[in-house]
Design a protein around this nucleic acid. Sequence first.
DNA 1: ATGGTTGCAAACCTTTTGCATCGGG
DNA 2: CCCGATGCAAAAGGTTTGCAACCAT
Lengths: 143, 143
Amino acid sequence: MALLKKIFYDYLGEKRLKKTQQRDLILDIFLTAEHHVNVDDLIRRVREIDPSTGYATVYRTVNLFLESGIAQEVRLSDSVRRIEPFYADEHHDHLICIRCGSTTEFFSGQLESAQVAAAADHGFRPLRHSLRIYGLCRKCQEQ
Amino acid sequence: MALLKKIFYDYLGEKRLKKTQQRDLILDIFLTAEHHVNVDDLIRRVREIDPSTGYATVYRTVNLFLESGIAQEVRLSDSVRRIEPFYADEHHDHLICIRCGSTTEFFSGQLESAQVAAAADHGFRPLRHSLRIYGLCRKCQEQ
DNA sequence: ATGGTTGCAAACCTTTTGCATCGGG
DNA sequence: CCCGATGCAAAAGGTTTGCAACCAT
């Protein structure tokens, strides 16, 4: 079974919470969704399969995802709340254009190690991170 | 006059918007507030001086701050929206403990230059950034 | 005078909560 | 069986919008 799924079910067990059909379905859809989803999209997809699912259930389940540590909230330039599965080895570095709103994901090994070093300086044990660099993308600089 | 104030008034001029008593007051309070404020605090402080100020006015003005580029939205571990003046030379690097919620601001020259390099690789012109490293603080690791 | 701005209240949207019913362990 | 989970609808934030009066320019 996938790691995040296991973590989630372990969390349910610890807290004496129940494994239900709805939670299974929401979890599966969440984990197979591309990069990040907002709650509304998630609800829409869940309802394609089980139309009787209530908003409250999805919200409650998403909160469990966050509490259990298998998901994290992401907000980019817009103010829409999105949720994404937390894969420890994934990076969350974005270039965000303040003019056109475009976002580019990137990776830099140098940056990653600088982060680990900075955290170590403070006795901090890093688990994940989010870096956003705001500025002007190539196109918007030309205009 | 302070730089951000000038930028804001220039923005108003460009857009044919007006300089009003309320906007002046809200701007002054915003710029002298410590690090970051949420909109509610801002309203409270504005009303200490001018109790007749409406919520809508403060919200509308805060949105102008964001549009004009003199302010940016910040969200840390909680989901409260905060607004802070954008000082270009300020850094926004935080270590956020996922257990106790404590946040520590830090600075790393190595990190700053790695960011500039990464942006340059994408033809991106960086203006400001926000880095959050989530993990366990020293105290919470010991527990 | 013109057209943007304000305060108020109502509308909106997203998220949470109360409650009776349902269903997992 | 027990107690947590669900669906519904209502409530609760936080933010925006419509409107008539107001006030910079």
